[in-house]
Nucleic acid binder design. Structure first.
Lengths: 141, 141
DNA sequence: ATGAGAATTAGACACAGTCCAATCCCGGCG
DNA sequence: CGCCGGGATTGGACTGTGTCTAATTCTCAT
C-alpha cells in the first residue's frame, strides 16, 4: 500500500504480505498489473508478461489471477460478457464503462452516497458491491 | 405493461408495440421470459423453448435475445463471467447476486437514492447504470 | 401464384477459460 | 552439498458461450 514505485522487490514483499509465495511468474504478473494502473484482461496480462524473456503459460496466468483475487490483491471487474478485467485498485470504487471502446474509468467511492438499499436476507453477507455506469458517445443514435 | 397474463396473443401485441415482427419463435422466446418472471441465460431459454414441439435453433435464440435487448423489451444482466442473463423486468432496478447459487434478486430502484456521482465526460451519454450486490451465505470460511 | 425480403436453420467456427497429467523448481534436511 | 517432497508451472486437450455463414423456409403484398 505504501509503495509509490512497484519494483519487483517491492512486489515480492507485497505478495508475501498477502500470504502468496512470490515466484518469478507471479511477480511478473503483479508487475504487469501494478506498473501500469490499468484494467487488464487475462489475455492482455499474458501478452504483457511474455513481452519479457520467459514464456509464461496461459494456465499460470489464469491460476495466478484467480489466486490474487482470492487473496484480495486485485479485483475482478465483470462488465463485458466476453472477458473479465482485473483491477489493481482494491480501494472502494466504482466504474464507468464505455460500451463502444471498452474503456474502464474509476469512480472513487468516497464521493458517492447510496441510501435506501434493502436489508440483506438473513444469513447472507455482502461480498462486495459493483456500480457500473455504461456510457457511449452522444448523437450517434 | 398492462398485461397480467402473458398469453401468446398478448405477447404478439407486445412485440409489435416494440416494432418487432412477431414470429412463432419470437413469441415462444418472449413467453419463456415473461411467463416465469426469472432471470434466464440464453441456454436456459433455448431449453425452455424446445420443451414445446418445434425445435428452435440456437442461432435464433441468440439473435432474438439480442433483438429484444436492442428494442428494450428485455435487459441484459452481466454478473457472471461465464454467461449473460436476460431479465424481462425493464423497469429501473438493481440486483443482488448470490455468488454461490447464482441466484439473482431484484432491488427496486425507486427506493434507492444515489448522490455524488461525477459528471460524465462531455459528449458522453448514459446508456444505463447497473448496481450489483454480491452476497454469499455467512459463516462458511 | 409469385417473388422479394425477412427470418430461421445447421453446422462450422472463434475464443475465453478450465482441466489434467507430466515436469520443474525450490527450500529444508541429512 | 546433494537429495527429496510438495507446490508451481507447463502444454495441450477440452468445454461452453456465443458468432458467423450460406442455404433454406416463411411471409405477405401484389
Amino acid at each position: 500500500m505504501g509503495y509509490r514505485h512497484y519494483s519487483r522487490d517491492n512486489l515480492a514483499d507485497v505478495l508475501r504480505a498477502h500470504g502468496i509465495n512470490p515466484t518469478h511468474q507471479r511477480i511478473e504478473i503483479a508487475h504487469a498489473l501494478y506498473s501500469r494502473q490499468e484494467h487488464l484482461s487475462a489475455d492482455r496480462v499474458l501478452a504483457l508478461v511474455n513481452e519479457r524473456h520467459p514464456e509464461t503459460s496461459r494456465a499460470t496466468v489464469y491460476n495466478t489471477l484467480k489466486l490474487f483475487v482470492e487473496k484480495r490483491l486485485i479485483r475482478e471487474v465483470i462488465v463485458d460478457p466476453s472477458r473479465v478485467f482485473y483491477d489493481p485498485n482494491t480501494s472502494a470504487h466504482y466504474h464507468i464503462y464505455d460500451v463502444e471502446t471498452g474503456r474502464l474509468t474509476d469512480i472513487d467511492a468516497a464521493d458517492v452516497r447510496i441510501e435506501g438499499l434493502p436489508a440483506l436476507p438473513t444469513g447472507m453477507v455482502t461480498e462486495g458491491m459493483d456500480i457500473i455506469i455504461r456510457v457511449r458517445r452522444a448523437q450517434d443514435l
